[in-house]
């Protein structure tokens, strides 16, 4: 292992380019450590985001050597090639500046997919759902999403179709579609059907490959495809 990394970092707002930095290598160094070193020691004007730095919040997601990752959980030793690293902001999101992207569109699509729970019951009259209930099991498989946008940034359909809701929003919609307590199911199914919704997915599965929490948006989208198509064919959509 050489003592120095050649790090190429995307800089710029409207237009941008890669700028080279030399960063000393350290044992157990993460890509977030590298970015933080650059901003603190080499160029304080570098814009980037992080929060928990322990793999819980998803804020530090960036494109490392072309692949979307959580930089706090990406060891340099795992991804470095010929002592070089390329760090860029997440794809498919407008770049505010340098490594920081505008996440509003991502969360707007979450809302468009009816990604919020709507119930009518109270604590005096609550639904009794068994934990091994089939639908509950489906929900559990996808509920841990923290909205980091790695899947969204990895998806080519998001790139090709600007109105495609994307894997995270659809995954969340699937967890709610399976929630027996939710009362907005018809509106939700309508929102996630069609070419802006689940039917545009081509099972490229980059979302499932890249999700840092090992969720499977492809699974959720497959479930939505069949459910919404059946409702549409029955004229109930």
């Amino acid at each position: 292992m050489s003592s120095e990394l050649q790090v190429s970092v995307w800089r710029g707002a409207g237009e941008g380019r890669f700028v080279a930095y030399r960063v000393p290598r350290a044992v157990n160094q993460t890509v977030l450590d590298v970015v933080t070193y650059i901003q603190r020691k080499l160029d304080p004007s570098l814009a980037y985001r992080y929060a928990c730095r322990v793999g819980m919040c998803g804020t530090c997601a960036m494109t490392v050597n072309g692949v979307a990752r959580w930089t706090c959980r990406t060891h340099v030793s795992k991804v470095v090639r010929d002592d070089a690293l390329e760090i860029a902001p997440l794809s498919n999101l407008p770049v505010i500046r340098d490594l920081a992207t505008d996440m509003r569109g991502f969360f707007d699509k979450w809302a468009k997919a009816h990604g919020q729970f709507r119930g009518t019951k109270s604590r005096d009259d609550f639904a009794k759902i068994r934990p091994d209930d089939r639908q509950r099991t489906e929900i559990d498989a996808g509920i841990e999403c923290i909205g980091c946008a790695v899947c969204y940034a990895s998806c080519d359909v998001v790139t090709w179709r600007p109105d495609f809701l994307g894997p995270a929003a659809l995954n969340r919609a699937w967890t709610l579609v399976n929630d027996a307590r939710d009362v907005e199911q018809r509106e939700r199914l309508r929102a996630v059907a069609g070419d802006a919704g689940c039917h545009a997915c081509h099972t490229q599965a980059s979302c499932t490959e890249r999700c840092p929490k090992h969720l499977e948006p492809t699974r959720a989208i497959a479930g939505l495809k069949l459910m919404t198509a059946r409702e549409a064919v029955r004229g109930r959509l």
């Binding site: 309508r190 059907a193 069609g194 070419d195 802006a196 919704g197 039917h199 495809k225 919404t228 198509a229 059946r230 409702e231 549409a232 064919v233 959509l237």
Partner: peptide
């Protein structure tokens, strides 16, 4: 084209 129509086209393509 409505979402419902797109969903039906998807279904027809799969069938």
């Amino acid at each position: 084209m409505s979402a419902a129509t797109q969903a039906r086209l998807w279904y027809a393509q799969r069938v």
